[in-house]
């Protein structure tokens, strides 16, 4: 039944984790500058996908507008490091401060949004639709707001700098972002394996049952929503640095749906599967979209349907799961 039966599921998952880390870490050996800069951005998308997996796969909360957090994080990063936020100069325009502000800003925004949505007991598709509406509205605002670049967005975003040292070498930037992804993965993995994670899975399975055990469901959801948004905001901030631009498209509808597809394809119930889903889809897209042109979207659609039919837990979900089968 299980072709990996000779090692424990935990052992198998650990081997794959290490393999993925080594594969990503060795990628620069290919010595292809273009591919490297692409993969740097894909890592950021992977981190973004992981944040969605946290709330959707583990918390059972389907967020249709997740790009709004990614976009807000990206804009905060761009505006802060470019010194465009009035009153913030000097150290307050540093990369590190901007990263922290991106995380805190998006998490705060999500906790306020979450407070109204979850305390109002909004759930299921209604919650998804409201978050989608928020993303669409945010995209409209960013398009119309000239100070933050309007339709064209912002370019010339200062390079990533750590204590005065500017990371200009794409190779170093790649490893910095890989390192940040690794840290966030380890933290998220701790969270889903902590008692909080157990309660979260329980909420996903049967919210009422959890509430009748004395838990305040709204508070639990606001917390995971804010954590997820904070990570998405960090991913957005890293995107601004890696891609060197921000624009309204990263706030809205299309990225929100794309990330849902990456996560569903990879496997929403496993952080690493969601991460790999984003990286693989983007990589395949980079390789094939030139050849296939518009048919790429069709191909992705077909892949998505096949995956839902034959791998409901995602392409990597079953492989990376250490739980017994349903």
């Amino acid at each position: 039944m299980n072709k990996f039966a000779f090692i424990s599921p935990n052992g198998r998952v650990n081997i794959i984790r290490i393999f993925v880390l080594i594969a990503l870490g060795c990628f620069p050996l290919l010595q292809d500058a273009y591919l490297l800069s692409q993969l740097t951005v894909f890592l950021v998308y992977g981190l973004f996908a992981m944040s969605l997996s946290l709330i959707w796969g583990y918390g059972g909360i389907l967020c249709f507008g997740h790009a709004v957090f990614f976009g807000i994080g990206a804009y905060i990063m761009a505006l802060t490091t470019k010194g465009m936020i009035p009153g913030m100069t000097g150290i307050f325009t540093s990369t590190l401060f901007a990263l922290l502000l991106s995380i805190a800003g998006t998490a705060l925004f999500a906790s306020i949004l979450g407070y109204f949505l979850f305390s109002g007991r909004l759930s299921g598709p209604y919650f998804g639709i409201v978050t989608l509406a928020v993303a669409v509205v945010a995209e409209r605002i960013a398009t119309k707001w000239d100070y933050i670049g309007g339709f064209n967005g912002l370019t010339n975003i200062p390079a990533f700098s750590i204590g005065g040292y500017e990371v200009l070498d794409p190779l170093v930037l790649f490893y910095v972002i890989l390192g940040i992804c690794l840290i966030l993965y380890l933290i998220s993995d701790r969270i889903v394996n902590a008692p909080f994670g157990t309660i979260l899975s329980a909420v996903r399975d049967n919210e009422d049952r959890v509430e009748f055990f004395g838990y305040n469901i709204a508070n639990l959801k606001i917390l995971i929503f804010s954590i997820s948004a904070g990570i998405a905001g960090l991913a957005g901030a890293l995107f601004a640095v890696a891609a060197e631009f921000v624009s309204p498209t990263i706030l809205g509808f299309s990225l929100s749906t794309e990330v849902l597809i990456w996560v569903a394809l990879g496997g929403r119930e496993i952080l690493l599967a969601a991460f790999l889903g984003a990286i693989s889809v983007r990589t395949i897209e980079a390789l094939l979209s030139d050849i296939l042109g518009y048919y790429w979207i069709l191909g992705l659609g077909v892949l998505f349907i096949l995956c839902v039919m034959f791998f409901p837990r995602g392409l990597f979900g079953q492989l990376l799961s250490n739980k017994p089968r349903n």
Partner: peptide
């Protein structure tokens, strides 16, 4: 694990 404020980071 009912203290109703489940720990975020501790291993289960």
């Amino acid at each position: 694990s009912s203290n109703w404020k489940p720990s975020l980071l501790r291993s289960k």
